[in-house]
Amino acid sequence: MMQVYTNEMLPKTVRILKICDETPDTKTFILENITKRIPKPGQFYMISVFGVGEFPVSFGSANENNLLITVKKVGQGTGALFELGENDIVGLRGPYGNGFPIEEFTGKNIVLIGGGIGIPPLRSVMEYISQHRNEFGYVQLLYGARSPKDIVYKDKLLKDWPKIIDVKLTVDVPDETWKGHVGVVTTLFDQIKNLDSIFLIVGPEIMMRYSVLELKKRGVKESQIYLSLERKMKCGIGICGHCNLGRFYVCKDGPVFRYDIIANERELFYG
């Protein structure tokens, strides 16, 4: 059959159904899922604020009617999105990227490691795991935020997920209310139960670098580790040339990479 191509650079207009504050600089937006497609955990969309621009965003949760995204305000596009309200229109295209090969992890123990705004892709994985809980072994989630007020998805992390998996939280800088662990996320690694797990890491590049280093010290093989990477993206579909890491384009060959495949890339873990 001949494949019919459409102009993939044209977004669909979708409505913002609901907005909630997560942290002082992070909001969750629930959008109409007008294509009804259910993306794979770890995939992303290109979202437009018309007149300002377009940027990539992971989805945290999805069903036939809604897509949930969570955005940290860091620049022009994200800033403009924060100005919008419920019922306003944004542009959306996708889902793009490979996502996590979650079916391949069936029967395995899993450790999810997240830092800061790296949590939405892990939420999409958690959504899958909660729907298929008995297909997986022991599951842990280690999440680190800058301070207690920077923790994204508090309800999920503190209430919902601990019911089905082991959740461990840490903050770099505690406040009066914080009774939990203090330190960067790698200081939680001594609490990893199974070193034979699959490790899924999403967060700032520096956090991923030290996570990989610490895991390798503990004897974890490179092929047990998956990273979701971030590079500047302008098309999301492998044609604008912006997001490359060596021979790979993060938008189409990633954003998820098994670590051993990219371990020698010069620009990995920059900064």
Binding site: F50, G51, E54, K234, I239, C240, G241
Partner: peptide, 10 residues
């Protein structure tokens, strides 16, 4: 060379 930028103008 094929790399391109994408941006909006009003």
């Amino acid at each position: 060379c094929f790399c391109f930028d994408v941006y909006d103008v009003k």
